[in-house]
Design a binder for these strands. Structure first.
Length: 789
DNA sequence: CCCGTGACTTAGGAAAGGGGAA
DNA sequence: TTCCCCTTTCCTAAGTCACGGG
């Protein structure tokens, strides 16, 4: 499928003379140093040339990653870096913000009015405002900060900025919650092997149980998952002393009894009465209370994940080589706490001790442990509504917002650099283009023991297909193994470059961008603006897109309509960022259901109109438009609807019968008999006959009491419902595989949403859920209807 | 100067909750 | 009022990126 013809031949030379060798994939160059500078990499070359990655499978999956040595091309330094470098015109003003000035300083321009006025008195010296470009004039007496400890939320954005390096002054918390100890299964619930019950030691039973609980999931059917699980299970079993059966083959194990047991437990839980559930919840809440919050600089703040992750089987996403491995139980001895020196240290669980207690105020985690799958750290952190998270979120958006002062120049520069004679620079420019235009992620290198996913810099030969004159088809798995598939048109020069990046001897499995890497890219970006990295482009372009989309919405219509339009704008952003969700298993049927409902509503409406005509036949000539749709439904459709209605009526009758009987049984009264049921059914049968007749004559029966007025109002109601349902259907289909939440939560500057809410008079509750309102409280309180990204 | 480590953001799916239709 | 489905929240995996030490 990689149509080689297009890709490989005739690489029209780019303008400028390009050193032949410069075009050679790095991995092929052996000792010559082409890039003027460098490539003195000979040292490393040896290994490289031999080890180039090959596609290991027809599908083009990588075989193994070889570290590439980046040294090689060192930055062509400076001067020939026309680059993306420097010259950058400094943005207007803006000098102010450096973090360095902790405290004091700054409120450059003030605030937007009013809002602030509410409780706290107004002046926000705050970080938020201070950044505000809108030069409003009010000055701002450096404010008095309130010290009240009001338990109501501490408004960090109205306080002085805090310096960057240090994350907190004081931090006090109650530690973490450990998962409950393993509870052995009842003795009759067992794993079976070759049909025989297995007596497992507790440690192994627990692991078997992890699998048993998920026996019916897709994970459990995945061979890699099974293999990894089985290896770890066998190891645990062996370490625990083995069991009565010699277990050597995963497929001879039978988890069905275990699985049934867990299902039963779940059902049981579901069956608890409302009160019981409530009581359990209350107890749980009470227990968790102390862990939910902590004291940060004297202010109460929420903790995010205060629960240590329970043991289980690792559920990797996509084709993860380690999926199914045992995630071992985390003990207090694995956990490092971080809090203020001198404050009370939370007690570790009975008989245990903490791995370490640290007092590092340059980090923002409360506790940490090492996880055994990827050997990386897990952290207990503040919740999204905390000041620490809020501040860094705010900074993130401010940084991306500043990109607007540089974006023109950046675009100009990379466009120019697309033709640079130096291969590395062309790669750099092309990558910038892709990141900027298609919102690709940076794409760092990944290991063999991770899922094979890519971003910009790690794109490989097989991930793009070129169709002259300038069409590119991207098809690769990105973060979370979500597919990125797009057929797009690109700048002529980008197309040429990509073709060169695929030039032989490159082949499937090879990196397109073999001379650059995210760090290199980011280093260039820093030349334009402090804090500028690849990911900032995603934030910038997402928020910019949102702003532009919102600007197109007319300020009219009902709240519901405006919300729909807002969501449409949101959707544009989500599509830009490729935020997907798997269509729910029930999606197809639920769409079908809405279709059916729609048909039924139409039928109902037509039928009602027919009734009107029966009452007053001359209306048809008076208002032909109104009765135009009378023949819209085919006989088959009508019949189909009739049948569905009848069937539903029967079903309902049966259910009602059942329910009544259940009730009578409890009350110990005589039950209804089959005959009673038949009676009920008889009514339905009559209806059926009525419909059959109606189908023949086309004339519905009319009850005595109806009037034309009543019928007309029924028609109106139906018309409305049809309209609403149609909208609902469209929304559902448009949204079926797009996830709006991720962009709303991470990419769209929340002040845009707040601006929309205020300007369009849409209650913020319609746009932000409770959690998002908490998380973005700073935005809600600081942006007004004129705010601009 | 790497390159591994550490810390932090971003991400989709599962579970829980809640509100509307029957 | 119950039940079901959609929305929200929880969970934790999977990215990005800076930095420090050999």
């Amino acid at each position: 499928m990689m149509s080689s013809s297009d890709d490989n031949v005739a690489l029209s030379m780019i303008d400028g003379n390009i050193d032949q060798d410069d075009d050679m994939p790095l991995s092929q160059i052996s000792s010559k140093s082409t890039d003027t500078t460098s490539v003195d990499s000979n040292s490393t070359e040896g290994q490289k040339s031999g080890s180039k990655r090959k596609a290991s499978s027809p599908t083009g999956h990588k075989a193994k990653k070889v570290k590439r040595s980046k040294n090689t091309v060192k930055s062509e330094s400076d001067e020939e870096n026309t680059p993306l470098a420097s010259t950058t015109a400094p943005p207007p003003k803006k000098t102010s913000k450096k973090k360095s000035e902790s405290g004091t300083a700054k409120p450059r321009n003030g605030t937007k009015k009013s809002k602030g006025a509410k409780s706290t008195g107004s002046n926000k010296t705050d970080a938020v405002k201070k950044e505000d470009e809108v030069a409003k004039t009010e000055k701002d007496p450096s404010s008095t900060r309130e010290d009240e400890e009001d338990e109501e939320k501490y408004k960090w954005w109205e306080a002085e900025d805090v310096d960057g390096e240090q994350k907190w002054e004081s931090l006090e918390h109650n530690g973490v919650i450990f998962p409950p100890d393993y509870e052995p299964l009842p003795s009759h619930v067992k794993l079976y092997y070759d049909g025989k019950p297995v007596d497992l030691p507790l440690e192994a039973e627990e692991v078997a149980g992890f699998f048993g609980a998920m026996a019916e999931t897709d994970h459990a059917k995945n061979p890699t998952f099974q293999k990894n699980f089985f290896e770890d299970f066998c190891k645990v079993l062996k370490d625990a002393g083995g069991c009565n059966v010699n277990i050597i083959d995963f497929h001879r194990m039978d988890f069905s009894k275990m699985h049934a047991h867990f299902e039963m437990l779940r059902d049981q839980k579901k069956l608890l009465s409302k009160d019981e559930k409530k009581a359990i919840k209350a107890e749980k809440d009470k227990f968790e209370e102390p862990y939910k919050t902590c004291l940060l600089n004297g202010h109460k703040e929420q903790v995010g994940n205060f629960r240590i992750e329970p043991p289980g089987l690792f559920r990797g996403r996509g084709a993860h080589p380690k999926t199914g491995k045992l995630k071992r139980r985390v003990m207090p001895e694995d956990v490092t706490l971080n809090l203020s020196e001198g404050c009370k240290i939370p007690e570790p669980p009975q008989g245990h001790k903490w791995a370490e207690v640290r007092h590092d105020n340059t980090v923002s985690w409360l506790a940490m442990w090492k996880e055994n799958i990827a050997d990386s750290f897990k952290y207990v952190r503040f919740a999204a509504n905390s000041s620490i998270k809020g501040l860094s979120d705010f900074k993130k958006f401010e940084t991306s917002r500043k990109l607007r002062y540089h974006i023109d120049e950046i675009r100009k520069d990379y466009t120019k650099m697309l033709k640079d004679p130096l291969m590395q620079n062309r790669q750099m420019a092309t990558a910038c283009y892709l990141i900027d235009i298609f919102a690709l992620r940076a794409g760092g290198e990944k290991g063999d023991d991770e899922a094979d996913t890519v971003g910009c810099c790690s794109l490989r030969y097989e991930h793009i297909t070129l169709k002259p004159p300038n069409k590119v088809i991207f098809d690769f798995l990105g973060k979370d193994s979500i597919r990125f598939y797009q057929e797009v048109e690109v700048e002529k020069q980008v197309f040429k470059n990509l073709r060169i990046f695929k030039k032989p001897p490159k082949q499937p499995g090879d990196d397109l961008f073999d001379r650059i890497s995210p760090p290199l890219l980011n280093k260039q970006f820093q030349n334009y603006m402090k804090g500028l990295t690849a990911k900032v482009f995603r934030t910038y372009n997402a928020s910019k897109t949102m702003q532009d989309q919102l600007d197109l919405i007319p300020n009219e219509g009902t709240v519901a309509e405006k919300v729909v339009k807002f969501n449409a704008a949101n959707r544009t952003v989500a599509i830009l960022c490729n935020h997907q969700r798997t269509v729910s298993k029930t999606h197809g049927s639920s769409v079908q259901k809405i279709h059916d409902k729609l048909k039924e509503l139409e039928w109902h409406k037509i039928r009602t109109k027919k009734m009107i005509l029966q009452l007053e036949p001359n209306l048809k000539t008076k208002d032909p438009d109104y009765f135009e749709e009378l023949d819209d439904l085919s006989k088959e459709d009508t019949e189909h609807i009739h049948r569905a209605l009848i069937e539903r009526a029967r079903e309902a009758a049966r259910k009602r019968f059942q329910r009544e009987n259940d009730k009578l049984k409890i009350e110990d009264k005589p039950l209804l008999t089959e005959k009673d049921l038949e009676e009920k059914m008889e009514k339905v049968n009559e209806l059926e006959k009525e419909y059959a007749e109606e189908l023949k004559t086309g004339k519905p029966q009319i009850k005595k009491s109806v009037t034309v007025e009543k019928l007309k109002s029924q028609v109106d109601t139906l018309t409305n419902r049809i309209l609403n349902t149609t909208f609902q259907l469209k929304d559902k289909e448009d949204n079926s595989e797009v996830s709006l939440g991720t962009s709303k939560m991470n990419y769209i500057d929340p002040r845009l949403t707040v601006m929309f809410s205020k300007k369009f008079n849409v209650p913020i509750e319609k746009l932000f859920t409770k959690t998002l309102r908490d998380k973005f409280n700073w935005a809600i309180e600081s942006a007004d209807e004129n705010w601009k990204f």
